[in-house]
Design a protein around this nucleic acid. Sequence first.
DNA 1: CTCTCCCTT
Length: 679
Amino acid sequence: MNPFDAWEKQQRKKADLKYGSKNKKQQSDDYQYVFEIEDKIVDFFRESVFDGDNFDEFDSELPDKSAELLQAVSEYPVLGTVGETGSGKTIQIPQYLYEAGYTKQGKTGCTQPRRVAAMSVAARVSQEMGVKLGHEVGYSFRFEDCTSDKTVLKYMTDGMLLREIVIEPSLESYSVLIVDEAHERTLSTDILFGLLKDLINYRSYLKLLISSATLDAEKFSDYFGSAPIFKIPGRRYPVELFYAKAPEADYIEAAIVTVLKIHVNEPIGDILVFLTGQDEIETAKEILKQRTRGLGTKIAELIICPIYGNLPTELQAKIFEPTPEGARKVVLVTNIAETSLTIDGIKYVIDPGFAKVKSYNPKTGIESLLVNPISKASANQRTARSGRTGPGKCFRLYTLHNYHKGMDDNTVPEIQRTNLANIVLILKCLGIDDLVNFGLIDLPPEEALLKALELLYALGALNKAVGRQMAEFPIDPMLSKTIVASDKYKCSYEIITIASVGNSILYRPKDKQIHADNARLNFHLGDVKDHIALLRWCRENYIQIRSMKRARDIRDQLEGLLARVEIEITSNLNDLDAIKKAIASGFFPHSAKLQKNGSYWTVKHPQRAHIHPSSGLGQVLPRWVIYHELVLTTKEYMRQVTDLKPKWLVEIAPHYYQLKDVEEPASKKMPRAAGRAKE
DNA sequence: CTCTCCCTT
């Protein structure tokens, strides 16, 4: 381990230890005290003016590059485009193509990583062109298709285009495809790259534009056989960049102190603070409230706005209210504000340099969601958030040295940190068996590919007919196998309900079944009063209306797909065993057996696991369970757990389990072999 | 005896 890694590790350990305990001790409202810590803890130095190269061109008109762009498009099959955020490339390029007549030969499709972006950009373009949204200009993503026969400029999510390729691999109806925000490297974008690169070889009149915001456009250019890169001029205000002089162990405390320091010393303007999650944001909010309370008229009012993905929409709206005269707003955000959400009027950014990152360990099948240092690209993205409407300042709570030596250049692409079973299945259905030589821009870990293939084999998905059926469903293979298997157990109605609620419920805890059933009755009666009852039920049970709606949409879609793959809708509500067997048909690779000490060992790739305390089975501890997923947080937790009879495993998956795997010990009590289970 | 950064089909 090099010294920087060691340093990083130590800092993170310290941060973890102090966070929580330390915050609770320091609850002084004292004005003096604030400044005492300020001087003690956070000391910055001004490093540079970030991205100041456009500084002199602010008031000048940006040059019109449309003619040159169109020339380049006509000359080359693939073109990379690079532009600062705010250069308007997403909005303008498709309009240039439209005016130049490209849309007469076919549609122009433009992919976005996010739904909101697809929708809002389409709305803006239709407005600029003076046409009705959904006519010439439209958008499309799952559950919402705002296009018509007239549509020639189509904005869509990258995942949507991927689905379209599965249905029609040659994409005949398109003449131009633009992959926008390519630098974000979503799984869908990476897979699209591979498919489109192949497609342009036999669809010579297809034009491909790869659009990205950062300078790694050269990587994309190389990937597409040295495609030329077209730079689109943009403008951005300069941002003064500050680094901590010394490492800060407790970044929440440091962030809070910096907020107060800015609030007292700097001219008016709103502050954006990047934290890692809901928990930290709520903690920081409370501390800030305490420290500013009682200061009265000594300082200006500080309005605290928390924003994270889980926050109900009506509370999120608060950040868009303009800051009152004389006051200052501090917005505490997760990564949601790095790309998805733009907040106007931000003048100061505070960046502790951390984010929660989901990753997947193919060896153990464990997913984890842990706090990690961000990449340089990500740090620069955060910094730029302060220079959108005027010159800004960015305070990095880490040292310049750590920026250079302790942070990766780019965030690890999603394809390298995710479970690949779903995408491997889709590619198999497109006739792509060899992913290593498929020509991806970055290869996933070999183990992840093997693990995916092994799973698909176990599920029988490598059989063409079964695989096709499963691939129709836009869900994980284990879950789609459950749906396919529900035909046999005559309970497809119940299974698609379970599948659509997805991550929130896979098992209905016994003690809550009456509640769940009552709620469903309320849901189906369709009377206004009952809807109110349902709303109340949602509130009482802390269920977001948003997730309920989503579950209903997914259920409708799954029901439609059942017909497509010719599975009849059958209901078998009284036979819980049939439902459990259907679930086991998809999730049998995720079985685990109870140990003496109340923990579990997974059966196939032996691994310790615990039932998550929020599960209805946390107290019951069934001898055998199957689980939906294994997540590492404070411990290895199984989420969404169902009990089962071990003999079902052999019955359902004889190719995967043998009798000796599931043998019960002679004793009726706890298994004698508790400590031996690893064998 | 405690999970949910952000997305998406």
